[in-house]
Each structure stands twice: as C-alpha cells, then as structure tokens.
C-alpha cells in the first residue's frame, strides 16, 4: 500500500539577516535573503524517515510563496523528497494564516495525501497555527508538536511534550502531524542529492488551479490588519563592568539598586 506524504514548507527571510516590513506593512520578502525555514527541515526529515520505513511511499513538498520560494523546494528535494508543488500567484501577496491554510488545504487535497507533515512554526511569523488550521479544513486528525513520530499500519503515533505533561498521541490516517526541533537533526543534502534534485519535477499551481477566488486571499482577503509597525528603540547602552574579583558583588549592588533584592 502506498503512502502519500505531503510536507508543507515555508520560504522565509533569513533570521540572522536584517528582517523588515515593506511599505504595505507586510513582511518584506523581496529585498532579503530567504531560505527554507529551518523548522521545516525537521518536517522534511521526519517525512523522509517515515517514507524510508514504509514499503512504498512518495514525499511531495509543498510551498505557498513568491517566485524565490522555489529555493526552499529545491533544498527539500535535495534532501530527498520526490517531487514538489509551488503555489504562486500575485494575488497571494499579504495572505494571512487563515488564507494560507485555505490555499494549503486545497493544494493538499488536489495533490492527494495520506499524511501531511508540517513544521512547528514558521521562523518569520512564528504563529504555530497553520497546521491546526489545515487539519481543521481537511477534516483530519491533528497530531501536532511531536518530538517523536512513527507510522505503522495506517496509524500515526507520536509524543507531544507539553507544558504540563508529556502525552502519547495516536490517530488513524489520513492525518496531519507537525514536528518540533526535538524530533531529530535534519540531514544535509548530499552532492548526489543536489544533482538529483535538479531533475525532480516541480509543479506550479496558481489560484485558479485550486478554485480559489482572489478575494479569499491576499491583503484584501485577510482577516487581520496590521495598522502600525514601529522599530523597537535600541536598548540604551547598559553598564558593563569587568570582573576583577568583585563582579558578583557589583552585580548584587545593581540588583539592589533596582529593588530586585
């Protein structure tokens, strides 16, 4: 029995670079270096491991994003995914989480799936809600924020380490899982992988391919509106002392002056 896995991956601005907003208060994705969200590498890794353990499996990576988002797909393909889908449309600019989940859900349905694997959060928006939203839309169980995951005989199992407890979860396929950065280091693409990726198929879909109206997505279709963005003022330079034997005492003095002790 074949197992169809779709991995949702996001192309994000590099967190170690300068991230900023465009004039329309959306995240600037044009003037910055982008990459496959590091947290989605964990999703690709777990999908590949699940596929390796299955008799017959196919891993499709899916992204919704601008032209450059192809880079994220290439990276995932060079890690070992079989094929890729890029949903790209000018009308998508400014889409919020609710809209993104619509596009992802329609694309996942069109692609066909038994298991969806997502990251825990995107490194730019860091909402951590898209997987739950996609599960709600697809009407399949959400088995999210897993630090351990396995699939056997049509059942997905995993461990979710929450605030109050660590939970063992279980659901029947089709299902959606999301994995955390505790799920295991992602592999580096090999030279062979990088070469092979160049020949792997990347499909491009636009909104009409998914029967989505322009009004349902984009900045105008958004359910939320950013009204103001301000750069956080640089923290005023603090006092820095070099420890010459009294550093701990000096620090205590500072804490006392701030009424912490």
């Amino acid at each position: 029995m074949s197992l169809r896995i779709v991995v949702t991956v996001k192309y994000v601005p590099d967190a170690t670079g300068d991230r900023h907003f465009a004039d329309d208060l959306t995240v600037d994705r044009d003037d910055v270096d982008g990459l496959l969200s590091e947290l989605d590498e964990y999703a690709v890794e777990q999908a590949l491991q699940i596929a390796e353990d299955a008799d017959d499996a196919e891993v499709t990576v899916l992204t919704v994003g601008p032209e450059d988002a192809k880079d994220a797909l290439r990276k995932a393909l060079s890690m070992g995914a079989d094929k890729a889908i890029h949903v790209e449309d000018d009308d998508l600019h400014g889409t919020d989480a609710i809209g993104t989940s619509l596009v992802l859900a329609k694309a996942i349905e069109k692609a066909g799936f038994d298991l969806v694997v997502s990251g825990m959060a995107s490194t730019d928006g860091t909402m951590g809600v898209v997987p739950a939203l996609v599960a709600e839309r697809l009407g399949v169980p959400q088995v999210t924020l897993l630090s351990e995951v396995s699939v056997e005989d049509g059942t997905v199992k995993g461990r979710r380490d929450g605030d109050a407890a660590s939970e063992q979860l279980e659901a029947q396929l089709p299902a959606l899982v999301s994995v955390t950065d505790q799920s295991g280091e992602a592999r580096y693409p090999s030279f062979k992988g990088i070469m092979a990726a160049k020949k792997k198929p990347v499909e491009s879909w636009d909104l009409s391919d998914l029967d989505i109206e322009a009004e349902e997505v984009g900045l105008d279709g958004a359910f939320t509106k950013v009204e103001a963005v301000t750069e956080r003022p640089a923290r005023t330079a603090g006092t820095i002392v070099k420890d010459e034997g009294e550093g701990g005492k000096q620090l205590a003095e500072f804490l006392a002056s701030q009424k912490f002790i």
């Binding site: 923290r235 603090g238 820095i240 420890d243 550093g247 701990g248 000096q250 620090l251």
Partner: peptide, 23 residues
C-alpha cells in the same frame, strides 16, 4: 552585551557564586 542593562565580563564560575553569596 548589546541588550543588557548591566553586564559583567567575567567567568561565571567566579561571578555567579559570589552574587548568590552576596544576596
């Protein structure tokens, strides 16, 4: 140190126990 209100450049194995004692 770009973020701090107060910073100590030093070995934490010296500074932290001294701070704890002082408190």
């Amino acid at each position: 140190f770009e973020l701090v209100d107060y910073g100590v450049v030093g070995d934490l194995f010296d500074v932290v126990p001294q701070l704890t004692e002082e408190i």
